[in-house]
């Protein structure tokens, strides 16, 4: 589904991503790494938010480097950005409907999709009329994920969904991802390796712009380097 080969990326004269290969099929894939490893830059390159310097990115067999972000969304790639990127001045309902309104293949099924989203996040049904900006951090994250799902994506990309959330909400978010991976491909970046390993099939470790480890979730759990550096064992 998503195939990245030899990706080079950076800002100004600083190279951030150096020859990364990464693939996501019908599965849930984790991308781990410390702050500054280049996780967000890599996702930005996929979404057309920052332009790749070199290498290739394919989605559904089509080359997509330099495709505008809104086209990526219409092609079926939904992004839940790192900051709580939602529409604070709009109600929960409007936030969700906006997720589908501009995506041709999602527009007609938005009512159906809304039901699905509400069954994943029941709290949002109760808060439909509330302004999204007035909700708690965890609820805003749920709105952001729900909004992305409203576009009925083939690939869902989440950039550090656990960032700044209390542990119980983090667990809830990863439970939802576990449920979601049955129907949609997922690429999730995380620093919280322990929690996210439970919801992914495979993972990559990115350090200083290079992939240093690529393994199944089981393999990562027993990898001595991962154990020492990311799980603190």
């Amino acid at each position: 589904m998503l195939k990245i080969q030899g990706l080079e990326c950076g800002y100004g004269r600083m190279r951030v991503i150096e020859g990364v290969n990464l693939e996501v099929g019908a599965e849930s894939v984790g991308l781990f790494g410390p702050n500054g490893a280049g996780k967000t830059t890599l996702i930005g390159a996929v979404m057309g938010i920052n332009k790749p310097w070199g290498g290739s990115i394919e989605f559904d067999g089509k080359r997509i480097e330099n495709t505008d972000t809104h086209f990526m969304a219409r092609m079926g790639v939904a992004l839940v950005p790192q900051e709580r990127e939602l529409f604070p001045g709009m109600s929960v309902d409007d936030n969700l409907m906006l997720g589908a309104a501009y995506i041709p293949h999602a527009r007609d099924k938005s009512d159906e999709q809304l039901e699905k989203v509400f069954s994943l996040f029941p709290i949002l049904r109760e808060r439909r009329k509330q302004l999204a900006g007035t909700m708690s951090g965890g609820q805003q994250r749920m709105v952001a994920i729900a909004r992305a799902l409203m576009s009925n994506p083939k690939l869902l990309i989440l950039d550090e969904p656990s960032l700044g959330l209390q542990p119980s909400i983090v667990a809830e978010v990863f439970e939802v991802l576990k449920e979601l991976k049955k129907t949609v491909s997922i690429l999730v970046t995380e620093q919280n390796v322990r929690e996210s390993l439970r919801s992914i099939d495979r993972g990559y470790v990115l350090e200083n712009g290079k992939i240093v480890i690529e393994d199944s979730a089981e393999g990562l759990k027993t990898n001595p380097y991962v154990l020492k550096s990311y799980l603190g064992l």
Binding site: T69, A73, A78, M90, R147
Partner: peptide
């Protein structure tokens, strides 16, 4: 409200 969210919503 939010340009990044708007772009990733297909606007």
């Amino acid at each position: 409200n939010n340009e990044i969210a708007a772009r990733t919503s297909g606007i």
